[in-house]
């Protein structure tokens, strides 16, 4: 469900307050640089502008119903979990293996059942990335802790 603009505006106002509070924690400016504009100046100015715009959003949203939107399907949440786990899995399994797993997990989560095609993608995608980026452009991807351990043993 799309949020009401009033709620969106209120959330933004809350975020502005948090942002302002964070600016109070900025370090001290050395005395020799104190004639410069303080580091809090610009972020606070922008936060103030966002706060004013958010107030307008709150005001204009009152009495206006948001357009209904469909609830998020299970596939969406599965996708979020898969892409977030990609960053976690990379540390363990390494980039190429992780991308191979993603190449299986995402199509399956999205309802694809042609397993031959999925298998081909899972092999070809990491292989192509290895060829182009590691061999071609010298990008060193993390090997992952498990492979590191295996190499040590």
């Amino acid at each position: 469900m799309k949020h009401h603009d009033t709620i969106t505006g209120l959330v933004l106002l809350g975020l502005c307050a948090i942002g302002y509070w964070l600016t109070t924690d900025f370090g001290e400016v050395p005395a020799m640089l104190s004639q410069n504009v303080p580091p809090t100046f610009f972020p606070r100015l922008v936060l103030a502008v966002v706060a004013v715009l958010s107030l307008v959003l709150v005001a204009t949203g009152i009495g206006r119903e948001p357009e209904p939107s469909a609830p998020l399907p299970v596939a969406f949440w599965t996708t979020v979990a898969i892409i977030a786990s990609a960053a976690v899995l990379t540390g363990l399994l390494g980039t190429l293996l992780t991308l191979g797993i993603i190449a299986v997990a995402l199509p399956v989560a999205w309802g694809e059942r042609r397993y031959g095609h999925i298998g081909a993608l899972a092999v070809c995608l990491p292989a192509a990335i290895y060829l182009v980026f590691t061999l071609g452009l010298d990008v060193r991807f993390p090997a992952g802790r498990i492979l590191d351990l295996l190499m040590q043993t």
Binding site: I83, I102, A103, L106, P107, W110, E112, L121, L125, I129
Partner: peptide
């Protein structure tokens, strides 16, 4: 199919 296009885009 999007099921193959978007995993490639994500990679």
């Amino acid at each position: 199919p999007r099921t193959f296009l978007w995993p490639t885009v994500f990679a």
